Simulated scan of single mutants.
Amino acid sequence: MQALQVAADAHVGSKMLAGVLPLNKVTFPALGGAPGDPFNELVDYSVVLDNADVPALGRFAVVRPEVKAMILKHDKFIASSYGSAQPIQNGVIGSMAGFTIASTPHLPAGVNIIAGSPIATTFGDQLVNIESFRHLTKFGDVVRGLHVAGAKVIRSERCSSPPRADQIANG
């Protein structure tokens, strides 16, 4: 199951990155001399979503583990998450600036944050050609099948990396 999750994360991330509007691609520095501020980046991105009439409900950001560590240490995350009754599950670490934050190390190379809305991207998967048979050397049955999956960006203005400040100022 872990291999299916890794493959799905990598596939959907690459589709989202390929479908992003060119002006909305930006590098968020998670490491190095001057790392970025994830809270400010998410606030800036929420402006882009607001201007595209994207509903606030369901907004998400998927981040690399390095950015996750920055978020978990961020005072605004701590203040908003303290005492939350929401369980941590499926990689979700909490919420910040109106985004549900999830973490995976399987984002496309060079990408630290992908943010958007579920109305921007579709994903479907299914197990087909399932068969079971007796294990030859152990007690029990073996079940195998073919996993097929696909993803597509259907609204490119609603999934992208956070905008740069000069993109907001210049429209």
Rank of each mutant, 00 (worst) to 15 (best):
P118R: 06
F133R: 09
P35W: 11
R134A: 14
A109G: 05
V92G: 06
G145L: 07
F123H: 07
P118S: 06
I88F: 12
G91L: 01
G110Y: 04
S84R: 02
V6P: 03
A52D: 13
N51D: 12
S161Q: 11
R158W: 14
Q5T: 15
G150Q: 10
N40E: 15
A7S: 13
I114N: 01
A61M: 07
K15W: 04
R155L: 05
T137C: 01
L136T: 11
K73A: 12
F139D: 10
T121P: 00
T27W: 03
S161K: 00
S14I: 15
P118H: 05
E41R: 02
K152P: 00
I168A: 04
F123G: 03
D9H: 08
L107R: 03
I71E: 09
D44N: 04
G110P: 05
G36T: 02
I101P: 07
G150H: 07
I93G: 04
N129P: 08
Q89G: 07
S160R: 05
V148P: 08
A69M: 12
A169D: 09
D141S: 14
S161C: 09
G36K: 00
D53E: 10
R59N: 09
A8K: 03
S81W: 04
N24R: 03
N129E: 14
P105A: 14
P29V: 12
L57M: 14
A102C: 08
I101N: 03
D44C: 06
A18K: 08
F123E: 11
D53F: 12
K68I: 05
L17K: 04
N40K: 00
A149T: 11
S81N: 12
A79M: 09
V128E: 14
N90Y: 06
L49T: 01
A61H: 03
D9F: 09
I88E: 15
A30P: 00
A165M: 14
G58W: 09
N90L: 09
Q167F: 15
V63Q: 05
F133H: 00
G32I: 13
G116M: 02
N112C: 02
N112I: 04
G145E: 12
Q86M: 07
L127P: 01
Q5E: 15
A7K: 15
K15P: 00
P105V: 13
R158G: 12
S117E: 08
A52Q: 14
I71H: 02
T137L: 06
L146I: 11
D141N: 15
I101E: 10
G36Y: 02
K25Q: 08
A120S: 07
V54T: 10
L21Q: 10
L72T: 15
F133G: 00
S160T: 11
K76R: 04
N129F: 11
G58Y: 08
R164A: 10
N51W: 09
G124C: 05
A30Q: 04
A7Q: 13
P118T: 07
G94R: 08
D44Q: 03
N129V: 06
G110N: 08
S95D: 13
V43Q: 06
M16W: 05
E41V: 05
A102E: 09
D9Y: 08
P162E: 11
T121F: 02
H11E: 02
C159T: 14
G171L: 11
A151M: 09
V6Q: 13
I101F: 06
R158T: 11
I168E: 04
Q2I: 15
V128L: 10
A34N: 13
A115E: 01
L17Q: 13
